[in-house]
Write a protein that binds this DNA or RNA. Structure first.
Lengths: 340, 340
DNA sequence: TAGCCATTCTAAATCGCTTGAAATTCAGTG
DNA sequence: CACTGAATTTCAAGCGATTTAGAATGGCTA
């Protein structure tokens, strides 16, 4: 006998009141006699009633959920702990507010657009978290005209029409390159990420600008596509150049770690012959050989902050156009002054 | 003027039929005149109608969603690409079937129980994917009596009452240790993961059994807690032992990679003085110095298979009690015969 | 004692879709 | 020509909450 879950009607009957009263009581509206409220509450407790999210979503016209759509080719999904950490942070806030997190993973842009439209049209979510912003990102268009609040997580893009929570990665990358410059490096290369992303650009531009500002020649670049294989390949490429760089700034730690191994394999001593700086400060960075100097930020904190901000947006509150969170430079042993 | 989304009534009006007919048509029930169906379909297309998931969930008594609750301490969330990959695989199947994926991340067991109960009671999901099965896991209890289908992803535990999709990690681990034995190693240590998990146990037990079966002495063990820091610490511990092992089998790649660095730091040459085998075959493993020999399985495929199976369960179909997916041993340069 | 108000509650409509029962249509039959 | 039955289509009752307008109650005031 499949004992069905109690409904609000069962609670009402048990407490000897109408369903309206139960609803009013449990949603903390005032105007309910304390004694009645008490009766309702004990009926709820006795029956173990939990309001149906389905019914609630329909009558409140709120899904009580937020969505995050991840577009990455399959092989890039697991390369960094970014999403796991972000989601963990987001969740720690959402779960306290009775909001669910819907995650969708898509492979290409076409599917992505469909996913946003479907989730919106079906009314599954009340707002979106947007990641991996691209150069000419158009996602705000269908979000804005669907009237759903949305928020970008990551790098603040100049004049993007949605609020942002993230880190000034330009400043972060500049700090990394600055560190190399201060050590005395003059030929500083860069291994960049997947073209098109705002954060790829921010890191690369900051590197270029920092060199220019210091009056140094523009160093060599190679794309590592954010993968270990790409990082290894790019490292090989940079180290094979005629005027070999004495330092390389990598757009993420995964590539930097692969770069470390590649250097070892080529017999290039780090940091004596080559200084290496990464980006992300993944846990392994501190336990590499040599431990990796890198830029980090607290991704879980990003998650917490952006969830909080998105919930506020959903409630109709105003939020700052940009929330900039700090980064840090973890100084370890993969950087040193260049050898004479 | 916030142009509201069309409802089924708008479509019905436009097509000159009742809402029942629209519903019947769009849900592919037979018994609708082809000509009428055509009119309905064009009305749907013209208005761009998409059925409301909220209303549907209520009337069909189906959430059209599955849930996954991840319980890990914050610092372990991002350590491996497991969840990202699993979710990517799961999603590739779910998205085709109009099911959403709800992700919840909790920190401890108490929150976990609450999360399962809440998701179930609120009716947010039609089924669960269970990961990180523990030794005396009780999750089946509240799932079974809530009547929700659920499925374990990962290591098949003997006599666990829910169906499983995963890999025989015992066999996988045995293969890894066997490889070391065949190379001629006699003192083989193990760096284990977080105690309590089925997979931690499976890997450790398989290691012990393989040694015993080969008539070798039981090697030293240390827990690395699945983290890089832990892996480094454990490695240091094993290498400091009086009878230093000539090979170490790590319960995951992260620890093995940290182990590689630690060995380098201690001046222990890999693979000449120490062979290292990991578990996971993360992308970086192939680009470590030296490239890491490790056991891998296709986590995205796990995701696809378990999503498919869970959907079948939700439809009320029968599925095999256990679906065992393959693993592979990636032979690289971190293992070699022991030096005399 | 009638009139007023504030406080509590409830009836009933609503959210947008699904679905079983009933109504309608119409060709085929006897 | 009435009757049967298959094929279509519609009615209307849910699904389980929320919410608004208004009813009931009771204490006070004039």
């Amino acid at each position: 006998m499949p004992h069905t879950r109690p409904t609000i009607a069962d609670v009402a009957r048990r407490a000897g009141v109408s369903t309206a009263t139960v609803s009013l009581t449990m949603n903390g509206r005032y105007g309910v006699n304390p004694a009645t409220a008490e009766r309702v509450r004990s009926a709820v407790a006795e029956l173990g009633w939990v309001p149906s999210a389905r019914a609630r979503a329909l009558s409140r016209a709120r899904a009580q959920a937020v969505g995050i759509i991840i577009r990455r080719p399959a092989e890039l999904i697991g390369v960094d702990p970014f999403f796991s950490n972000l989601i963990a942070g987001v969740e720690s806030v959402l779960s306290r507010s009775e909001h669910a997190l819907l995650v969708r993973v898509v492979g290409d842009r076409e599917q992505e657009v469909l996913a946003y439209k479907a989730m919106t049209a079906e009314g599954r979510v009340d707002g979106f978290l947007i990641t991996d912003l691209e150069m000419r990102d158009r996602r705000h268009e269908y979000l804005l005209d669907a009237g759903l609040p949305a928020l970008v997580v990551g790098v603040p893009a100049a004049r993007y029409p949605l609020p942002v929570v993230g880190t000034d990665e330009r400043a972060a990358a500049r700090t990394a390159v600055q560190h190399l410059i201060e050590l005395g490096h003059q030929r500083i290369g860069h291994v960049s990420g997947v073209a098109g992303y705002i954060h790829t650009r921010a890191r690369q531009t900051a590197w270029r600008d920092a060199l220019r500002a210091a009056g140094l020649p523009r160093g060599p670049v190679a794309s590592g596509e954010f993968t270990a294989a790409g990082g290894a390949r790019a490292t090989r490429e940079l180290l094979a150049a005629p005027a070999r760089p004495t330092a390389i700034f990598y757009a993420n730690d995964l590539m930097a770690l692969a770069g470390l191994s590649t250097a070892a394999e080529l017999g290039v001593a780090v940091p004596q012959q080559l200084s290496v700086v990464g980006f992300d400060d993944v846990e392994l960075a501190a336990h590499a050989a040599p431990p990796l100097t890198t830029i980090g930020r607290d991704t879980q904190e990003w998650g917490r902050q952006c969830a909080t901000a998105l919930l506020a947006l959903i409630e109709g509150a105003e939020i700052p156009r940009r929330t900039i969170l700090p980064f840090h430079l973890a100084l370890r042993q993969s950087t040193a002054p260049p050898q004479r």
